[in-house]
Design a protein around this nucleic acid. Structure first.
Lengths: 343, 343
DNA sequence: TTTAGCACTCTTAACCTTAGAGTGCTAAAT
DNA sequence: ATTTAGCACTCTAAGGTTAAGAGTGCTAAA
């Protein structure tokens, strides 16, 4: 038997081991694999192959007389080369589409719906960040006086995202001044990205300083505040209870570590940072997440966008033993759908 | 010994049993109580009293040879008559005050901060609803055209809460019409409560129908949408992981039931409804919560307000074995502080 | 009324034991 | 040169037993 076939047999067996383990959460015995191959190979042969796979680091066994379980390296190989995408069923797609049909009054409702959807279809924890306006294009700003020394800025991006910011001033602004600033911003900056707005706006402001000379500082301060406010990053996570149903987490200490981690803003934010690296759907297995408390978990993430501008991130957190083929399709589809809805 | 003293001794012992149990999470033996009374009474005597308390339904024992634990009725008596408020320490108060000192750009940040604070001081789950605008007074509305057939309504209450609502129209409105509606709303309805706004506005609209005759329907529809949008009720809950640390929840099945319940919007909303009944700080013990999945928990809640108008609810969920004396003070103080901050 | 004394109950942890699953190795079979 | 049967060996998980300890309830004496 040529080398190639030999290698491909190994791969096949690795694939079977991993898929079986993902399904049953039990170590896989040589006999089980032999049966799956319709006895084309005897358990003894499988055992030899398994020993090779173990030497190569793709599988391991919890103790001498137990079957095999995948290692991180095994899962990695599985998602990289063995797994073939398992498309969502029409029923699932329909369910996702339907769930976005409802009326959403606020962006929060959309985000919550999305994360609930992810968690409930995947039966894992679903994670969605609130969209950032940073990459959005400036469309309209409205400055409303709410007090002598307080204004409400309502900022809207081209894609229709809205943010309210309340700004306090030391000395009150005159109504005319507010209008002047509003007009200035709306006419000069229509369409430019908020991320680049600061430099552009302050420059332009200096050019037109004559018109603004006595409110220049206030105007600049206000712009700073507005741009600072849109940087905030918030994550919504739902379905931690789904994870603890998984056999590998039926253990109080593990649950405790996991729940604590998922409640920790730093952990969430480092997860989100990680996700930014990936093009398309990103898969992080165990220690690849680089969060110690999540070393028994995997993360499948994807960003969502408006007109190719990054808005936020969504994904699934669950045990490493996760039906990647399905989850990847799910995350991909939901991210596309969300992007469309917001667009 | 007169009847009174006899009764008060019973109460004292009940109090000791409950406080011990709250501290240690272990059934309390007659010997332990005797020791706590500096042997003023022998264990045998205590046992007699305990038998009475058990007959009266205040305590029970898990099995023949175990010490006593409080029943719901016992806890109820404790919080109603035995417990004396345990004020927060200055350090704790300071911590709460400090945590509200930061800059909050959005109301969401305030709510999240509050619930995190509750959860972290109480070492239980903290719960805060987002403020409803319903009871707030109308202050200002701004209607901004964002598309031919889409407008953004920015609604602000007297107390400074802001809500954005995006409204779509079948046929486009003219710019002049928008201004007309904006002016109408801002001049005629300044100061009236949003809850009563609908009737008042539609009535007034009919009186002035001549001015609006060709956009009457659109105007009415828009008002309906705006008022519907402010009804939404959202709850933020943090610290479920704190509950599962408690000895009575060191059990996978219980944790599962609990986490599922706390992720269930219906459960949360029925908790919030409950809270509306109570004047000041409300305490609900076990089945009093009227949510079967939470029959082993207690709920301590209080509403928060602006100028005596109800805005929302905050509180603590934890095991029935909860340091009520401390938690009540905490919930009370945080609710007052939050009310002040928002005012 | 209170308390000492004591039999009784029940839980918990520790320790065995055993069945069963699965491996690794060796030697025979293909 | 592989593949496979056979078998000894290992480890887990479940069940059973035991003993210690904590606490009660009752009775009879103080």
């Amino acid at each position: 038997m040529p080398k190639n076939d030999f290698e491909s047999r190994k791969e096949k067996i690795l694939e079977l081991i991993i898929e079986n383990y993902i399904n049953d959460a039990l170590p896989i015995s040589s006999r089980a694999i032999s049966r799956r191959l319709r006895r084309a190979l005897s358990p003894a042969t499988i055992r030899n192959v398994m020993a090779d796979l173990e030497d190569a680091g793709f599988i391991t066994h919890p103790h001498t007389s137990a079957g095999r379980v995948p290692t991180d390296k095994g899962y990695r190989r599985y998602v990289n080369v063995l797994m073939q995408a398992k498309l969502l069923t029409e029923v699932e797609k329909k369910r996702i589409d339907e769930s976005f049909k409802g009326k959403f009054e606020e962006i929060d409702d959309v985000i919550i719906n999305t994360s609930r959807l992810l968690s409930s279809i995947a039966e894992e924890a679903g994670l969605v960040t609130f969209p950032t306006l940073e990459k959005g294009a400036f469309r309209h700003i409205e400055l409303v006086e709410v007090d002598k020394d307080k204004i409400l800025a309502v900022l809207m991006t081209k894609s229709g995202l809205v943010k309210n910011i309340i700004i306090e001033f030391e000395k009150p602004l005159k109504k005319g001044d507010l209008n002047k600033i509003t007009n200035f911003l709306n006419t000069r900056f229509h369409g430019i990205s908020l991320r680049n707005a600061k430099k552009a706006i302050t420059q332009q402001l200096l050019i037109e300083r004559d018109a603004f000379f006595y409110i220049l500082d206030e105007t600049k301060g206000m712009i700073d505040l507005i741009l600072a406010a849109i940087k905030g990053e918030r994550v919504y996570l739902e379905g931690a209870s789904k994870i603890i149903m998984q056999p590998e987490f039926r253990n109080l200490d593990k649950i405790e570590v996991l729940l604590r981690a998922l409640e920790n803003p730093q952990v969430l934010s480092s997860i989100v940072k990680k996700s930014l690296d990936s093009e398309g759907v990103g898969i992080y297995i165990g220690k690849e997440i680089e969060v110690d408390q999540l070393r028994d978990c995997s993360l499948v993430v994807c960003d969502y966008t408006i007109e190719k501008d990054h808005l936020g991130v969504l994904g699934i957190i669950g045990p490493k033993r996760m039906p990647y083929a399905r989850i990847v399709s799910l995350v991909d589809y939901v991210s596309k759908t969300l992007s469309e809805i917001l667009g």
